[in-house]
Design a binder for these strands. Structure first.
Lengths: 337, 337
DNA sequence: TTGAAAGCGCTACCAT
DNA sequence: ATGGTAGCGCTTTCAA
């Protein structure tokens, strides 16, 4: 490993000057800087970030602005991931301040962001609700603050963690298709747009479903679903062998059971405690979801690397893993023996 | 953060003495040691491993003894994981020497291990073929060498990464069950024991399958499968709607197609390039497999932590994630837009 | 059995 | 614009 000291010796300079060149100080003659940088390049110098950290003791100011959705599991898992990576890196003084706002309250997120920006901040993790507004607000800070976005890109961030809801929908479509009896149909339920996942799930699902499987040309949409569950029954008949859901699954399934409509093959997108229970009950055959824990963990980990490792070709994009869960997926290996 | 210096001051000692107590040196009076350790405990002292590393420049000698199986993907993925984590930690001088031996050659692994042990080695990652022999060989080294095992435990290692083949088999059973038409049967194929996964996959699968789905009481076993594929045909008739495979899947499916036996629902355990192709061709509906990349990555990462972070409550056990793959799982999100 | 001092690779601050 | 020096938290070597 080649050090700043090594470079200094070869050029007849001191470490201090070399460090200055490497850290982009302007208190240095352009020519000296060039000589140093050229040699560093030639010798394949890589800054040791351990030394940097220890010397700098650089406590970075990092915020994560996450979103509480109808599916509580979403925020819980992301937070868990953030906290785990924080713990792993605590020896670096790596600490993330987590702020949560409500998914339905776009302005709350904007306000929260503006508030954070009044402080001295080095890194930001955000799941933007209103992409355009957030982008506009952040633009002036882009060279000061390292940014990781989750779910939605603002196009100038250092890393965008993509959720792949569309793909999850496709996979769900793939699975449900294989389950349906010949000449039977499926019912597709449109849960509306939650500004995060629902719409994209549905689009992906539809892209996978063959025309012949459709009972209705359009997905079923029921206004104020939770109050109007009884309307669902109108759409169900002998033809139908399966249902796709991505919102209100617990409520809808509960309702169907109460009406004694059973034995339908149900595949969902998303995961939370209720869906887990329904899988266990065999009310649902399979669900397809993103690994939100991993999103939090990966967001934190990468922000750390971007912040602490100066010589890093930064990752541009990352797509979350997609998990397919059947009932048996939930069983812990330890419980089997 | 409390430092050794802090402890020294409070006790009226020097850093050196404190360090000695903390590092378990014997050149120290028992009483002094106790005073230091007690205070450290009380103050919640945690050694900063960055400082340790930088001071010690402790190049550790680490070996990984992995196994080349019939499924080449197994070793490829584990190696990839090992290399990725190595790269991530290279600033710590973390480097793993990877040695591969053949899965069928148990003695080769033993020899390779014995050879390694003649060297000065700090950490070892191993996927033991003969558990008992390996255990016996390693016993005398247990306090000198930190050990991570993959797939099979030797009971005294620092971390055992469990593969969960049994569970994978269960999940495969779960999936195939949901796919089979009423009153139809499945054919279960016994691929024999490869000392890694096959047998466990099959056991798991069987545990999940209801009696009513079985066509034959016992899984079909065909000696020298690859030469005797034609025997398979004897077992297939109108009753059968699905097949379970965990070895020789490509060869068997190729054969069935050549005999014009199609439209059977096939679910497999395991993953490699050939299975990927069959999923894409819809020859297979789903496959259930372990994330071997993760096993390598996690093995390396944890060995690092055990080796470099002295104050660690070490993890005892880790079960690999299990992936269910349908055709659409293979599509890259980027290709969809 | 304890202490003093040097040094790992780097940053930060002061002096020139 | 450049250099000198101290120090981050720790290990290691030598001296007492």
């Amino acid at each position: 490993m080649i050090t700043q000291e090594d470079l200094a010796k070869k050029l007849g300079l001191t470490r201090t000057t070399v460090a200055r060149a490497l850290n982009g100080s302007k208190d240095i003659k352009a020519e000296t800087k060039k000589r140093i940088l050229d040699l560093a390049e030639k010798e394949g110098y890589q800054k040791n970030y351990l030394g940097s950290y220890l010397a700098g003791k650089g406590k970075k100011n990092i915020y994560a602005l996450i979103v509480k959705s109808l599916n509580e599991e979403y925020a819980i898992q992301i937070k868990k991931g953030l906290k785990d990576i924080q713990k792993e890196l605590e020896d670096f003084g790596f600490k993330i301040k987590i702020l949560e706002t409500d998914i339905k309250n776009i302005d709350e997120q904007i306000m929260s962001l503006k508030n954070i920006l009044t402080k001295n901040i080095d890194g930001l993790i955000i799941a933007p609700l209103d992409k355009e507004k957030i982008k506009k607000i952040l633009t002036p800070y882009l060279d000061k603050i390292k940014i990781v976005t989750i779910g939605e890109t603002i196009e100038n961030e250092n890393l965008f963690i993509e959720s792949g809801y569309y793909k999850s929908g496709r996979v769900a479509g793939n699975i449900l298709s294989t389950l349906i009896k010949k000449n039977k149909k499926i019912l597709i339920f449109d849960g509306g747009d939650d500004r995060i996942s629902s719409k994209k799930y549905l689009e992906g699902f539809l892209s996978q479903i063959e025309f012949s499987l459709l009972k209705y040309k359009e997905p079923i949409f029921i206004e104020n679903m939770l109050e109007n569950k009884n309307k669902l029954k109108e759409y169900i008949d002998e033809d139908i062998d399966g249902i796709y859901l991505n919102r209100y699954a617990p409520e809808i399934i509960e309702y169907l059971k109460s009406e004694n409509i059973i034995n339908l093959k149900i595949v969902t997108n998303g995961f939370n405690k209720k869906i887990e229970k329904m899988l266990n009950n065999k009310d649902i055959i399979a669900t397809v979801s993103e690994d939100f824990y991993e999103q939090g963990y990966y967001a934190g980990k990468n922000l750390f690397e971007i912040l602490y490792k100066p010589n890093l070709k930064k990752p541009q994009n990352y797509t979350t893993k997609i998990n397919i869960l059947f009932k048996e997926s939930l069983v812990k290996l330890g419980d089997l023996k």
